[in-house]
Design a protein around this nucleic acid. Structure first.
Lengths: 346, 346
DNA sequence: GTCACGGGCGAGAGCGCTCTCGGATCACGT
DNA sequence: ACGTGATCCGAGAGCGCTCTCGCCCGTGAC
């Protein structure tokens, strides 16, 4: 192990440049009011000594940490079944590093974790939080709210957020669902079924709402609840086939369930898309492309979602005024558009 | 927005408990030598005031940050195509939070990012690093080495690491590959082909080596290089079919390529596993289960890998002595076993 | 030539914590 | 009753930085 060479301090740089600490600080932090000649000398000293500011010391006085927490409250399933998570992180990471902020990742599984995380964020170690909390009984949002930490949610939260409203970024689940169903209608299908996601997640609810927007008078038996897993897609498909053998299209709440449905349809000798057209949601790669036939689906721009969340939060942090709640009226949702990707299944 | 109530300081707790700062510090940090009566008073004061230590102030003097960096140097592809990344993170996260360490995530794409990351870790903001750097020309390891930061690598690095050796955790790629090929042999197959991963990654090389361990005298035309993507699996499979129409088994370097191969085989009217048996690697869910037929593959315990990396690093950090390089002899690789998962494809 | 003014710079306090050191306290043996 | 450790606790310095304050010097107006 390289003997931890004591890192040079501001003091050292100041000595070398023949100026005071204050001046070095000014130069390092890009403030004005330092004559160019001096500034140059300081910069050279910084360079020569390989000076890097001690973040802890700085935070101690500025009360800023240039760090934000990304909290993912996911009991295993969803996060690991698909690459969404990684994509969002990528978007967030890009935006944060572009603004010299650190990303502190907090993964939680159970309520104990939540309390721990709550304490952590309340401890003022980070300047803000980005939260992915998709389940309905989650105590975390309340903990964070109490801590008064600037926060942006990923996906529409299931709670109203009290007085101020809640800032969040989401895909246009409802609109995307409408597009999917209209596409099916456009194909001349009329008996369109829907396999929903887990209805304790707002994304599933919103997609169902979108389905209903278009199919207001659909036979209620054409809607079956799944839980976003392939197995639930299979089960739901069997049930649908059993209830309404005459159906000619299925809109699944995500690609995984669509893949399950596809298998059951093939098993029952229904040709896709000839007999039954199938549309998924997410455009989860590589699943959507690998199914047989490749899946027509609704794509959301995951990475952009992450970016946007970060941008929103940073804007809030920078702008000394206007907390995000006050910026707009009530609950501030930013909804990103979706696009229908046409492949072979519908 | 909750008016940021000034958080209570040690001083405040001390005043309330009627003791000195030093005593409060002792109690908070669980040190001994404080009479129970006093300690109890302090704990109550902490509770009442909702005191949380200021990490910045603490770090300033202890020079510990209780934070480790997780650096993922991935040009897009692999990280996002599969959930490995998330799984490893989960493992790491569990282990770190169990020891009250923070996880600072650094995602990098290009060389500029690497320099930035290098500066960051050199800046002494974290106590150690966990690095996933799979590509061969990566400048990052060298930067980190120069910074003298305790580091554990995920996956066997492609460099020797100079004097000390390098600590890493990896799956038994070579052994897993051997198992896969032996399984195929056990099925009575003899003309076994291999589709390799991108050979600038050690995992691909090791799997190829495993293949060769068993098939030392195989026709060299039975080995085709892919790059871990489904498309490359398709291409490679076509080439193999073209070169050696008589092949009766394929061992693919990962599940994605196996899925591609499966499609091409079907397209060519070869039945799996009757005509051609196929084995993948990774047991990447849900892909491996969703192929037709479901994929026989080599599973690695990804989450455990993450855990282990974290544990190794923490042990190094805690034990004031023995840097990991010195702990064993030379390059310290910890190799995790793999298991063959039998499904329908072989 | 004098005075007011303003911009550039340094002195110094202080952020909240840890940790060393020495003083107080207490139990015990003599 | 007094010395002797051992134990417990507080005073105070200092970690590396930022930021206010005021000094100094240069400039322009008179």
């Amino acid at each position: 192990m390289t003997d931890t060479a004591p890192r040079p301090t501001l003091e050292a740089v100041a000595a070398r440049a023949g100026v005071s600490r204050a001046t070095v600080s000014r130069v390092v932090n890009g403030s004005h009011g330092v004559r160019e000649r001096l500034a140059e000398r300081v910069r050279r000293a910084v360079e020569e000594l390989g000076y890097v500011p001690n973040q802890a010391a700085r935070s101690l006085v500025t009360k800023r940490h240039d760090a934000i927490a990304v909290i993912v409250a996911e009991p295993e399933t969803r996060v690991f079944a698909d690459p969404f998570f990684a994509r969002q992180l990528r978007g967030i990471s890009k935006e944060l590093t572009a603004h010299d902020n650190q990303l502190v990742l907090l993964l939680t599984e159970d309520r104990d974790d939540h309390v721990r995380v709550g304490r952590y964020v309340a401890g003022g170690h980070v300047d803000g939080a980005l939260v992915f909390s998709l389940h309905i009984d989650d105590p975390l949002p309340e903990l964070i709210r109490q801590a008064g930490l600037p926060t942006v949610y990923g996906g529409r939260p299931d709670f109203s957020g009290g007085q101020g409203g809640v800032v969040y970024v989401d895909s246009d689940n409802r609109g995307g669902a409408r597009d999917a169903v209209r596409h099916l209608l456009g194909l001349g299908r009329s008996r369109i079924a829907h396999i929903t996601g887990a209805l304790d997640q707002t994304a599933a609810v919103d997609r169902l709402d979108g389905f209903r927007d278009v199919m207001a008078d659909a036979d209620p038996r054409l809607v079956v609840e799944g839980d976003f897993t392939p197995a639930s897609g299979e089960r739901a498909m069997r049930e649908l086939l059993d209830r309404c053998p005459s159906l000619d299209a299925v809109f699944a709440g995500n690609d995984l369930m669509a893949a399950g449905a596809l298998r059951v349809l093939r098993e029952h000798g229904r040709r896709v898309p000839d007999d039954v057209a199938v549309v998924g949601f997410d455009d989860m790669l590589p699943i959507a492309e690998q199914t047989d036939p490749p899946l027509t689906t609704v794509r959301q721009d995951i990475e952009e979602m992450g970016r946007l969340m970060a941008r929103l939060l940073l804007r809030d942090l920078d702008g000394t005024g206007t907390p995000p709640e006050a910026a707009g009226a009530g609950s501030d949702g930013l909804i990103l558009p979706t696009t229908l990707i046409r492949r072979a299944s519908a």
